[in-house]
Amino acid sequence: MSESIIELVDLTKKYGSFTAVDQLNLEIRKGEVFGLLGPNGAGKSTTILMMLGLTEPTSGSVHVCQTNSAENPIEVKRKVGYLPEDVGFYPDRSGWENLLFIAQLNGLSPKEATERAEVLLKRVGLLDQASKKTGTFSRGMRQRLGLAEVLIKNPEVIILDEPTSGIDPKGVQEFLELIVQLSKEEGITVLFSSHNLHQVQQVCDRVGIFVRGKLIAEGNIQSLSQQLFANEPFTIYAEVSAAQSAKSAGLSYQLQQLDGLISLQQNGQHFQLGCSANISDKIARTIVESGAGLQSLYKREHGLDDIYNRYFQGGDYA
């Protein structure tokens, strides 16, 4: 196991009586892509701000690259690139000028800055448009320029706060591929906050689910679904034909008698069965034997969608 590069210990942030981040413990390892997943207002951005030392924690500690963010934010910000949500640029300056400005704030000489900027602009595919004013840039171009700017300081960690909101699907795809590529090639640790689960699922090695200031689950997607759906790891959907739907009352009774079935929901012709094992064959047989006319039957594996729904829409967190 590689060393941890971000360490949060009992991190708490209160705004008056409102607790934005509550006793958060999290460890992110070097070189991984970590997804911070949660609905809006869950405290993701606050946590990120505390990692950068932009906000002081009420209690607890943050260490990024073995440096305490609250005590030495400058040192942390030297090593961490941060792309805020909906990043803005000086609209009447060109992409070049914006990029060179940030590069020089990071202590690069004008010559170095120009050289690096050219490489990075090529990398994010903006070299042709970089001399245009950023006021004319589209949202996706701004995000790509933002990524170039984050990379110009040669960071060890990059933190992306909702980087894909407002970009079209193709742009998102390209952007995410770029992030994964970077992480793999240059060994940069990426922390990626989002409320969009599909994107997180696509790129992240590990995911932390964040609700109301608490990290309620953490791990890769497989282990998360195992944790969550330990008692009913399989969901099977079945549809019966409409003509025989009158018989479905009897059918649902029969299905409930099946071994391994945990839950059953019926909606007209549709059945949703939560099972402890893959008992598709038994279900199919039961339906066929009941004469209900099986239309379709499929088994679904748990993705982040289900994990997400379970946490946010169900139980105590709804």
């Binding site: 950068l52 932009l54 400058i74 040192e75 910000k77 030297r78 961490v80 690139g81 941060y82 805020p84 909906d86 990043v87 803005g88 640029f89 000086y90 609209p91 940030i102 704030l105 990071n106 202590g107 933002g146 700017e149 300081k153």
Partner: peptide, 14 residues
């Protein structure tokens, strides 16, 4: 309002 403040503050400057 332009969203440049948080970007600037994320740079290693006081």
């Amino acid at each position: 309002n332009r969203g440049t403040l948080s970007r600037l503050m994320a740079q290693p400057i006081h």
